[in-house]
Computed example of a mutant assay.
Amino acid sequence: MNARSTESAPKTKPATYADAGVDITEGDRTKQRIKMLARKTFNKQVLSEIGGFGGLFALDVAKYPDPVLVSSADGVGTKLKVAFELGIHHTVGCDLVNHCVNDIAVQGATPLFFLDYLATGKLEGGVMEKVVEGLSEACKSAGCALIGGETAQMPGFYKDGEYDLAGTIVGVVNRDKIITGEKIQAGDVLFGLPSNGLHTNGYSLARKLLFEVAKYGPDQYVNELKDKTGAALMRQHRSYLSIVKKLTAANLVSGMAHITGGGITENLPRILPKGLCAQVELNAWEPPPLFQHLQALGQVEQDEMMRTFNMGIGMIVVVPAEMAKKAKAILNRANERHCVIGRIARGERRVNYV
């Protein structure tokens, strides 16, 4: 009769979160570096440190006696795909903040604080730090505190080397200074302020045309673009906060539209009162080479271009006709390039291209 074996089974190694792809230790190291970058944006209104369950911000009620909070959330979209390809991660943080800053600036708001969400499959501390460095730089430039956020490790959800980035901004404006567009009238002048390229919209089509149709490489110099493909696509989404503040301080603005996804076609009508339309003159400005080449590559119809890309106009400011001369003087003193691209007229709430 055989004796029953008394040998014990081999011990297995205790499972850890790192075995599943989440490196808590690396995450903690990265958060410490991020904390230092965020602190550079702090002001006396910030009452908390990075790392708490929530960010604390004291509103200056002396400066804003009748405050209205204005918020917006957005992402960078498929521009991130170009960032992955080129290994450039600093500028997308700036893109995100500036996009959100512009979205609330058009309503007359001053940025107060910003929160980011950064998710990745496997945390690469150096990459994350570069992204937050861009967030911090743009926040500081806007006078906006980066008071918190979330860095999530999600193995299997994102491809190696890829991440997603989104953010939320909160600003403030006194109730009597809110800009909604309700004061826009027929005859008002449309001032177009130039974009710095695609900004953060239209990248799915742009990437298809440049990389699949034309088969350009990201480091390839293209004569029609007067630049390398990747460099042209990675130009930063500019902030209009400084010039917007000058125009609103002079009480010259009836309404403003940040030209993002949907182009002029879909963004300008968002601020038009019922019974008014915008007459936009297509020959008032020349779209930059990037837009012209994209249109040629895909034989894209003009209407499709105008509702997909900003076409070189990143912000539209609506000014009463009698104030146009003063607005032009302020823009000139600020060395802000601009052009009059049309006027407000009576009609169905839409953009008419003439």
Results as ranks from 00 to 15, higher is better:
K183H: 12
V189D: 01
Q185L: 12
L135K: 08
L146M: 15
E182H: 07
A186T: 07
D219N: 14
G156D: 10
Y216T: 03
F211H: 05
E150D: 12
G148C: 08
E212D: 15
I169L: 14
G167N: 01
G197Q: 05
T180Y: 06
K183W: 00
A166Q: 12
S136D: 10
P218E: 09
K208E: 11
G167P: 07
L165D: 04
P194D: 05
A186E: 07
F211R: 12
D176G: 08
A152G: 09
A138C: 10
N196I: 08
I179R: 02
V213E: 13
K215E: 09
T200C: 05
L198N: 07
H199N: 15
Y221S: 05
V170E: 05
D160C: 00
K183N: 09
G202K: 01
D188E: 11
D176M: 12
Y163F: 14
G192K: 01
D176S: 15
K140T: 08
G156M: 11
K215Y: 00
A145S: 14
D219G: 04
K215Q: 15
T151F: 03
S136W: 06
D219H: 10
L209R: 04
D160R: 11
E137H: 13
F191E: 01
A138E: 08
M154K: 03
S136E: 06
S136P: 05
Y221R: 10
N196V: 04
V170H: 05
G134A: 12
G143C: 07
G217V: 00
G217C: 04
L210H: 01
G148H: 10
E182S: 10
Y216L: 13
H199E: 15
K208C: 11
D219C: 06
E137Q: 13
A186K: 14
S141P: 02
P218A: 11
Y221A: 11
L210P: 00
N174D: 15
K215M: 06
Y216N: 11
V189S: 02
T200W: 02
T180V: 09
E182G: 00
E182V: 07
T200H: 00
L210S: 02
G181C: 04
S141R: 14
D160N: 14
Y216R: 00
L135Y: 11
R207N: 13
A142H: 02
P218Y: 13
N196A: 13
L190V: 07
G143I: 04
T168K: 15
